[in-house]
């Protein structure tokens, strides 16, 4: 309430004069954007990894995360939700410049292609078709898989491009951000696929764990590089990095992202190598921690969106 009022009324010596946080995409109704982006990462990661691993149930869950969570949350956030169609080509030509319009397009194509892929895969797995029909279904499945695979990656990444477009928010204004969205999303997907594997027992969990270990280390390095880049670059980006490390978002960063999102899953992952007993329980702990880390990451990134002041630096 207070934050909203201070944005509307003139606050000398502060608003526009000092670096200010963006609030539209993280506070009040803006929390829907945060949640939508989390489900976007989870859905993207799970669908992509499951598609490569050939796990039908996991692809279905990944697709549903996008259809039932990401898209509705984004729609509920809109001021005029019933006009959402205006952002989808061919009703708009804004895709030439707008990452949001592109994102709507990517998501729409993914939902359609993903549906076809799931349907065709179901037909193939359950032996519904045979002979020439099966050949046709296999071909359609192949095309739909490629389309869905490409567009789920774009769906998971476009928010990173949209945020990095904002020149006045230096912490976001970097080409690393879409890469962070992609790699973190894939790591989230690996964790969730292991969770699905615990139930369906048709996933090579050991192999996934070894990939996950590497990816977690890569992601940890990526975070270090991202923060170091922000620290070195500009004063406001440094301010945002400092905010994450020792400021108001430090708790979310250290406990949510570092401890729960990386250290605990990584430790459990290494520990399970030497465990001979049932690894299901520690694995569930790791998956839960990793998923909490996914929520924390998007929260911290959106929270760290700090505008440069409007007034010239000559002052």
């Amino acid at each position: 309430m207070k934050a909203r009022t201070s944005r509307q009324w003139i606050v000398p010596h502060e608003w526009m004069v000092l670096p200010m946080r963006q609030v539209e995409w993280i506070e009040r109704k803006g929390r829907l954007v945060w949640l939508a982006e989390v489900f976007s990462a989870l859905g993207m990661g799970l669908y992509l990894v499951a598609l490569i691993a050939g796990n039908w149930w996991a692809t279905l869950i990944g697709w549903l995360l996008i259809v039932l969570f990401k898209m509705p949350l984004h729609l509920f956030y809109l001021g005029k939700p019933l006009r959402f169609w205006r952002a989808i080509p061919p009703f708009t030509k804004a895709w030439k410049t707008s990452w949001l319009a592109r994102g709507m397009f990517f998501s729409t194509v993914f939902i359609a292609a993903g549906f076809v892929q799931l349907l065709m895969s179901y037909i193939i797995i359950n032996g519904v078709a045979s002979g020439a029909a099966l050949d046709g279904v296999t071909f359609v499945n192949w095309i739909a898989s490629i389309l869905a695979g490409v567009f789920i990656v774009l769906t998971g990444m476009y928010a990173g491009f949209a945020m990095s477009y904002c020149k006045s928010v230096p912490f976001w204004n970097t080409d690393l951000l879409p890469l962070v969205f992609l790699l973190m999303g894939v790591a989230d997907g690996l964790a969730l696929l292991m969770g699905v594997g615990l139930v369906t027992h048709d996933v090579d969990i050991e192999r996934l764990e070894s990939i996950s270990r590497v990816l977690l280390i890569v992601n940890a390095l990526l975070i270090v590089v991202y923060l170091a880049h922000a620290w070195r670059r500009r004063s406001v980006a440094k301010l945002a990095a400092r905010d994450l490390l020792v400021g108001r978002t430090a708790l979310v960063f250290w406990i949510g992202i570092v401890a729960l999102g990386i250290v605990v899953p990584l430790a459990i992952s290494f520990a399970t190598v030497f465990m001979e007993s049932d690894i299901a329980r520690p694995l569930i702990v790791a998956i839960v921690c990793h998923t909490i880390g996914a929520f924390a990451l998007k929260y911290a990134l959106l929270k760290a969106g700090i505008y440069k002041s409007v007034l010239p630096e000559a002052l």
Binding site: E24, L78, P81, R83
Partner: peptide, 24 residues
């Protein structure tokens, strides 16, 4: 035509756009 996504509010480097919510 505006759908109220507020991307323009964030993208404006001069913070000169306002989203009109009910409470405003």
């Amino acid at each position: 035509k505006c759908i109220g996504c507020r991307y323009c509010v964030i993208a404006c480097p001069y913070q000169n756009r306002t989203f009109l919510s009910k409470d405003k």
